[in-house]
């Protein structure tokens, strides 16, 4: 029996794996997964530190300074502290569901990062429909938050769960429309193809409205201010994470930054030419762009006031959706049709 037929990710076999034996394929998958895992962990860690430093600078503080050079070990200390605390689930929670959702979300996010290519050679999937898979799984996240919020049996989490669905309703359709426009421009849902099509001109210049919509929707997707109504610390304490125990909170942090990586990569690939760039190797270019976008998201986080959930719904349907249609039509008329 072929191993590839047993694996659910069969269509997304790494392009770099040797196509010969089944064992070779498996080894290729594992090698690639380890490489990407290292990238993710390093990024998450550096990003967590960078966010603290950048936000501190904006707020005229120093941020972490004590643990390690420039406080680089502070997050490690925090993680160790959180991991050393007691793990528990609230008594009136739906325990299996409550405990399962966070790991599932993390797994899905990591799987998504695996699918997205870091460079033409370092690519988790050669399929032509990666972007569709990514979109479907990205919109899976708010639903998992919904499940987690209700399973935790906390009223604040329940409100957060409701908000999660309202948010999904408000930004998902404009997001899909913009992605569809980008795919139409590139002539396919393959991320490699989209990057290749931007070798002359970045899509951010071809469809600036589309970029703005996508960026706003991504902020909402990533629970970044001003769209952090799910976590809304001044209203809902911590939203769906209110009753999460400290060791699980490490997972939540990991998830948060992994989603950040995912979102930044999507923005970089869809609008900023992905890994295209002179002199430096492709993966470096991609990471530079990812960090630049993440940096911008941090600045937005430090400066914006939280939006109200009903206003977001109105904003999504009355402003983002029409603009997304305008973007679609203008792009079709001017560039495709």
């Amino acid at each position: 029996m072929q191993i590839s037929s047993l694996l659910a990710i069969a269509p997304f076999l790494p392009a770099s794996a040797s196509p010969g034996s089944a064992l070779g394929e498996l080894v290729g998958i594992v090698e690639y997964a380890i490489a990407v895992a290292v990238i993710i962990i390093v990024f998450d860690y550096v990003f967590g530190w960078l966010e603290r430093k950048v936000v501190a600078k904006i707020q005229k503080r120093h941020g972490p300074t004590y643990a390690g050079k420039y406080g680089i070990l502070q997050n490690m200390a925090d993680i160790l502290k959180l991991l050393s605390k007691q793990h528990m689930a609230p008594a009136n929670s739906d325990k299996p569901l409550f405990l399962a959702t966070l790991p599932i979300m993390l797994a899905v996010t990591l799987f998504l990062v695996l699918l997205i290519p870091f460079s033409p050679t370092l690519s988790g999937s050669s399929s032509g429909f990666v972007l569709l898979v990514v979109l479907v799984l990205v919109s899976f996240m708010p639903l998992m938050i919904f499940v987690n919020g209700f399973a935790s049996g906390n009223k604040f989490s329940a409100i957060s769960a409701e908000r999660s669905v309202v948010m999904l309703l408000s930004y998902e359709i404009p997001l899909v429309l913009v992605v569809a426009t980008a795919a139409a421009l590139a002539g396919g849902y393959s991320l490699n193809g989209i990057v290749g099509a931007q070798s002359q001109l970045w899509y951010v210049l071809l469809m600036p409205i589309g970029f703005v919509i996508f960026f706003i929707a991504m902020l909402a997707e990533l629970e970044r201010p001003p769209f952090d109504m799910r976590e809304a610390d001044s209203e809902l304490i911590a939203g769906w994470l209110t009753d999460v125990s400290p060791p699980y909170y490490v997972l939540a942090l990991f998830l948060d930054y992994s989603r950040m990586l995912l979102g930044s990569m999507l923005i970089a690939i869809l609008f900023f030419g992905g890994w295209e760039g002179p002199v430096l190797p492709p993966i470096v270019w991609l990471l530079i762009k990812v960090f630049a976008i993440a940096f911008f998201i941090m600045i937005v986080r430090a400066t914006m006031v939280r939006m109200r959930i009903d206003r977001l719904l109105r904003f999504g349907w009355l402003i983002l959706l029409p603009l997304a249609f305008v973007n679609l039509i203008v792009t079709y008329v001017l560039l495709i049709g």
Partner: peptide, 10 residues
């Protein structure tokens, strides 16, 4: 209002 401590610190 959901500002992440920036104005508070300033």
């Amino acid at each position: 209002l959901g500002q992440f401590f920036t104005l508070f610190m300033w």
